[in-house]
Design a protein around this nucleic acid. Structure first.
Lengths: 322, 322
DNA sequence: GGGATCGATTGACTTTTGTCAGCCTCAGTG
DNA sequence: CACTGAGGCTGACAAAAGTCAATCGATCCC
């Protein structure tokens, strides 16, 4: 097809502007038309694909995935860890990336809430040392004997130590044997104050647990495998700071949750930056639950998890601009 | 490190600005930085190929002259650069057009052969940045000290760098002092392999040299003015990848050609897309020779050269359709 | 520990670009 | 031949982007 005269001038304007980098007034002068027309032609050139502007997809594939996840779930920032050729697998790299991301998010004078779990423990292990005076690291939930390298309180302290921050531990068990005891303990001033202060945190850090026999809560002895199965049948989709959430990310109404000493989910939601770190690609459902419940604003995941999330994105819409 | 924080923010700024169409101040607000920084990041994104802006070269291929040349010489596609009033002259514009055309022809996973010469050097200088992973740029012929801005190997590397592709250099001289030495060098496994791999290229890029005292081969010191004259008297009509061809586009049987380390003309003919770029209108005879020898399938020339070619078209027949 | 240095970042200012009401041209019509 | 209406073009203004000197902060080296 022969080029149409009107297309011809659009092409010329686009060429001079984008390829040669002339200004619109220079283009206008050269084509003998007004600058306003040039602006119009350039818009048309972009709209019709004569000029294409694209963000790189190969070199920054993990960044592209990250942006897409942000858009799909309305998150603040997402970091995607891609497997490196000849390197450790992506899952193993997640805590390393998460630790440096975490450091970048922390600022002077802030209060940071951390839960505990295998992923957070791994992060503590690789957390770089930094000098963040006036920072307070508080534990988000009660303690338990843990089958890992640190006890929960040690984990908090280790992170605080590496940041040269103040560590504030939670001197209560995560789970108690009766609802009554849990309620009474939550009413103790020292505990109540700590729980109330959670909403004042500037940043929270946690992972999301699964609801099966391999779950962290089971391994720590907070719950038996059969209890977990029962809860799962009752709609438990994930574990956040020791508490069971359903697939909408709301607190499950169950006996177990009533026996827990941990930060209230609404307090957690009130924290501006809620950083969730997920290593295992099998945690798709728990993560979706947490996302649905608004429990996450910053997310560190593997590329594989990013793809799975996108495949399940409720509405792949573009985030509305302000 | 897997993720560089500075690249991350540049990519995110580019994503929000170019993909989402936010204004710079909106991007700045969302990233918590100043608008000036956003402007800087966006510049960096454009400069490094995180964002690519490409303009269609239709303007140059949808031209009556281009069609006529295609038909007259049975070429795949021809791009014709017309002189613009107040603009750079057509010859100066040729490398710019050629660089854009070249980018449009390259696809993921391909192997590209490039020769060197003043025109190819000019193209490297104006080659836009792009993100073409899995592309390999190989040098088609040996090296020489060059009187231009790049050395031959630097030229290949510069093109590879801008395309974010892998550059594969040719570590041998273009011309040797004896036929024996050239033959032995060609038999070296490392050289032999590279020469053999030329036929596997998906795209080749070169210009055609003249056979006179101003020739590229003379300026690079590959040959003395008197040698050139002698070769011309013996039927040399042009230079392709350092080699002398006669007016039928076949390799000239001469001592010089036997002392050369360069891609075999038959290997070059085996490449599906052979892109020839000609700036100087004086290169009519060399170009006709290359066309006669089937050494060209895609051609970028000036309007003046197009007219000269048409005046000399052997058979002004209609190109056979598929 | 303090001072020097270098690069990144920003606020303030300038230049460039986007927009749109109104104007101008031209083809079609009575 | 004057009238009409549509479409494209422009001038002038508003909005956005580019630029740069000053500043901030991190790092390195005595």
């Amino acid at each position: 097809m022969a080029i149409r005269a009107t297309d011809q001038i659009i092409h010329k304007a686009a060429w001079l502007y984008y390829t040669h980098g002339l200004r619109q007034d220079e283009v206008a002068k050269q084509l003998g038309i007004s600058r306003a027309s040039v602006a119009m032609y350039l818009r048309k050139a972009r709209d019709t694909g004569i000029v294409t502007i694209s963000t790189s997809t190969q070199l920054f594939s993990q960044d592209v995935l990250a942006r897409e996840v942000e858009d799909a779930f309305g998150l603040d920032t997402v970091w995607v860890v891609s497997p490196e050729r000849d390197g450790p697998d992506a899952a193993a790299e997640v805590p390393v990336v998460a630790a440096s991301v975490f450091l970048e998010l922390v600022e002077r004078g802030q209060r940071i809430g951390v839960a505990w779990g295998r992923t957070v423990y791994s992060m503590a292990d690789v957390m770089p040392f930094a000098d963040l005076q006036d920072v307070t690291v508080v534990q988000l939930c009660g303690n338990l004997g843990a089958p890992y390298s640190y006890r929960p309180d040690q984990c908090t302290m280790e992170i605080a130590r590496r940041l040269n921050a103040k560590g504030l531990n939670f001197y209560a068990p995560l789970v108690l044997s009766s609802e009554r005891l849990a309620r009474e303990l939550r009413d103790e001033p020292v505990i109540r104050e700590q729980l109330a202060s959670v909403a004042d945190c500037d940043l929270a850090l946690y992972s999301i647990g699964t609801v099966d026999e391999d779950s962290h809560v089971v391994k720590c002895g907070a719950m038996s495998p059969s209890e977990v199965h029962a809860l799962r049948d009752n709609g438990a989709a994930g574990v956040v700071a020791g508490q069971m959430i359903d697939r909408h990310g709301t607190l499950l109404d169950c006996d177990y949750n009533r026996r827990i000493i941990s930060a209230d989910l609404n307090s957690i939601r009130a924290i501006r930056r809620r950083m969730v770190v997920i290593q295992e690609d099998s945690k798709l459902e728990p993560l979706l639950a947490a996302l649905a419940g608004g429990l996450c604003s910053h997310l560190v995941i593997t590329a594989e998890m990013a793809r799975r999330l996108l495949a399940r994105a409720a509405k792949p819409s573009v985030r509305a601009s302000a």
